[in-house]
Design a protein around this nucleic acid. Sequence first.
DNA 1: CACCTGACTTGACTAAATAGTAGTCAGCCA
DNA 2: TGGCTGACTACTATTTAGTCAAGTCAGGTG
Lengths: 165, 165
Amino acid sequence: MPLSFEGVLADRSTWRLDNCSIGRSMEAIGTRSSMLVLREAFYGTTRFDDFVRRTKIGDAIVAARLKDLTDIGLFTKQPYREPGKRTRYEYLLTEKGRDLFPAVFALMQWGNKHLQGEDGGPLRLVEQGTGEPVVIGARTASGRDVDLEDLAIVAHGDWAGPQSD
Amino acid sequence: MPLSFEGVLADRSTWRLDNCSIGRSMEAIGTRSSMLVLREAFYGTTRFDDFVRRTKIGDAIVAARLKDLTDIGLFTKQPYREPGKRTRYEYLLTEKGRDLFPAVFALMQWGNKHLQGEDGGPLRLVEQGTGEPVVIGARTASGRDVDLEDLAIVAHGDWAGPQSD
DNA sequence: CACCTGACTTGACTAAATAGTAGTCAGCCA
DNA sequence: TGGCTGACTACTATTTAGTCAAGTCAGGTG
């Protein structure tokens, strides 16, 4: 059995979650187009036409996504001006947006391993400078790797009591 | 600027991806219901009615998701038999399914930090036994933490040449 | 000042995900 | 053997995502 529950959560039959962070995250950013826009932003793209060209998503959807993601605080709009052009806006990741990088690259890592051919997909994450391969995974604050079997879930905050239904 | 590109990828204007692993992953599992079913599976749920009860998703959708996810190889169906009942099937995560745990818990971690109130959501990941907090993030093979600014992308496999359009 | 361009916006439509309800069907039990 | 239960399957409706084409509009250029 993967993963264990500790404390009041130990008996899985006595509680159920209705404000699950995974569900909320998926509601906020759980579409292909959101993820591709975020991918591009992590790749350094900031301008509308670059998002459109590099994601191959239509301009209407890119515009809608940038608006949504800006509304929920993943991007900020900064005015910029190219000589001889009028003022436009570029879309810069906020901390909230940047904090998504483990999620986005975990999907890339999984896709590389399981949805591509033998070669494992076109792109790899490495550390800048050293070129060492980079892996997205779980570890403790003190730096130990943790795999699924060694994970546990604990209740946190005021939501500490099980409630059944 | 977050993240850098190395080698042939250095000039972002000369290439574009059309077999991106992030896009493929989202096509395979990029729905709220898939993620919630996977969450439950990581929590140890294996049986149909438990998935239905614990996710609050309707039985029709759970059945569809379990079928999809089994078809693409994230679950296997194993027959089981309770005394006095007929044979049913339980849904067990395959390696391909288990490999998604960084992606799923990265979403949880992000949601805890950015989509919940002050308390940061109801559940926390810790290491079994020690109770140490667990974080999903990037690190090198040799165990060093890497953050976004120190990441780089390199081309891999036969897809090594830029192609523009 | 008419024209053009880039960055969106709008609208019409298709496709996919989700919700809710109503079957189906294998087999245990009376 | 006829009903009951649990695990699905099928159907309809609604909502959301995505495609495509056309329209808007600020402002710089000829």
